[in-house]
Amino acid sequence: MHVHPYERLWIRISIVLLAVFGLAIAFSSLTLGIEIPGVERRAAPTGLPADATYHEGWVRELGPGRYEVNLVARMWGFDPAEIRLPKGSTVTFYVHSNDVIHGMKIRNTTVSMMVIPGQTGRATYTFDEPGEYLMVCHEYCGVAHHVMSGKVIIED
């Protein structure tokens, strides 16, 4: 097959670039503490009375500075809609949907996931900066999708 020398060079450059991108992705996924949702052990609520606790939103303290949030997404809001925690809290969010597919993103953090009925989404983040963090639904979930939001308020 005939390949022009310049084109050969271009293909080599592309391969090197590809290797650089690959390494950057491998490096960032292994070292920066970024969590990509996967298969979660904690089951999603089934609707049986036994796991009624998971149908509602709650925040509980696991230990000093460590919290767990059970976040329920439903048309068209989050439960709890407002989460107040002290600065420096490390929070693990377990997120469920009670109806259609939703999304959940907390602005200026690494927390973002799809919220799929029947699945449990999990993400952990340490809030070092005080302030108000906007939490939005980022998947279309019906006619009032654009009002679906919440807040995480980190107090100094």
């Binding site: 592309s14 996924s29 996967g38 996931m113 699945q119």
Partner: peptide, 25 residues
């Protein structure tokens, strides 16, 4: 960002996706 899909297979697809970089270049 879908819970319920294995992270390993997501990574496999991520790398193959970058393969399309070659015919595009």
């Amino acid at each position: 960002l879908d819970p319920g899909v294995s992270t390993g297979y997501k990574a496999v697809h991520a790398f193959i996706t970058f393969g399309v970089f070659m015919p595009s270049m």
